[in-house]
Amino acid sequence: MPSLLRRLSPATAAPEEQSVRPDAVATALDPVPAYCDVVDGHVHDVIAQTDEAATAIIQQLVKVDSLAEVMAGDVAQLAGTLGRTETELSQVSSSNDQLVGRLISYFLHRDQQIRALVDQMRELDQHVKQIEEVSRATNILALNAMIEAVRAGEAGEGFSVVADEVRKLAHRSAEAAHGIGSSIGDLTARLDAVLSDDSQFDREQEIPQTNEETAMTRRLGGIANAQREMSELVAGILKDTVNAADQVQRSSAALTTETTGAVGHVQFQDITRQMLEHVAEAVVDVRRQSEDVVAYARGGLTEEELMSRVISVEALRAKHVMSRQRSTHAAQTGGPAHADAEPLIELF
């Protein structure tokens, strides 16, 4: 028994005169199982913690991804609505422009007709003045006729009556012509005022005037300009908002791509878990071997039984499943580095 213990611990082999004390070896190894249990407990605690953390990370990422998708959907809906509003606003603006254009054309045409009417009425005024002239001349003729009738004496009495009636008719004609002239003057003045009304509104708006324009057409032009400016302003705001919505959509899409990638990276936990489980298995092997040595030292195990269960670094290597584990193993033992020739992805 002592010779085997010496073989198992060559570095600490005692000089010939120093006797090996199996009880001391067994006592020294007694704490190893408990020690290994604690290490094993820590390893499994790390596995549990990383598992818990990885699960939480995935849940959070899925939630972020879900929120990003909802946000992208909402923003897409908003962008669609804004886009439609922009189109409708453009159509309404165009329609308003056309309507105002038609109104301006209508009023220009109406104003031209009024001007023509005023011109015709002014021509009537000339005719009225001619009638007044004729009335005056007729009145003079009637007066002359009456003078001649008086000279003719009794023979001219009848003629005198006719001359007086002619004078009265001339007088009435002059009065009627004057009345017509006044009415025409009044009407033309009112129509002129309608055409050239220069209200406070126009002055405030500072709308340039052309010969063809009237107050109404200038007002309509002003309304059209104001409406066009407002439409352009709102369209600009809508366009900026749509652009911002597009940007948010692109950001959301990028965010969901990132979260998916991050979810993929959480595979590290599964790889780490397996590596730690192999460490834990190795600790169990050490534990068992320490128990075996204690049992051998105390006579509970034969040398053959002990030697058949001795752990080896090569056996540990055979348990590795990952290329990384084999590389680490080689680095620690000084053995040849293992490089996998197989591709990481292979379709058979």
Binding site: G261, G264, E342, F348
Partner: peptide
Amino acid sequence: TGWLVKPVGPDQLLGV
């Protein structure tokens, strides 16, 4: 049908 060594990125997995 095939063999994929972990970790596999989402794009790689979906591509396969």
